[in-house]
Amino acid sequence: MAEPRIVVAPAAFDVAGEIARLTEGRQDVGGIGCFIGTVRAESQGRAIVAMTLEHYPGMTEAALAGIAAEASARWPLLGCTLIHRVGRLLPGEAIVLVLATSAHRQAALDATGFLIDWLKTGAPFWKKEHFADGDAIWVEARETDAAQAARWR
């Protein structure tokens, strides 16, 4: 696999541009798996006005590189991109992008699922939700995310 592209930054990402980076100049790609996570306006029945993403600079990039390496060891990937935004985000904004390319669709789709499941439980990011009344709470880790990641073991 080509060197994975890993970006952790506040800036919005350009999905078409990111796909083009993985496919430009090559004809061996048969499928591109894509997952985009976005900020919902609601959490447990309460309206959210914003979300803040904190991370551990240095460890985050290393953890994402490790997850990408694991995916490429399991599936015949041609390329992969992991972009995670940090800082203050608004409902409707994209927060995370996972792309995986392979000669065939199944590897691309499975690797994409694996990458987002492992990213959710294995990379040092923390979400804080801000409510209309000024209240803000740190999101608690969900058992379902751990179970989702564990099914790839």
Partner: peptide
């Protein structure tokens, strides 16, 4: 990522945080 038993040495960088919630 470390466990409670992980040994520490002079100069180590040790971080404490809640369970992660990215994605």
């Amino acid at each position: 990522f470390a466990s409670p038993e992980t040994a520490l040495h002079p100069g180590d960088e040790v971080a404490f945080f809640p369970p992660v919630t990215g994605g």
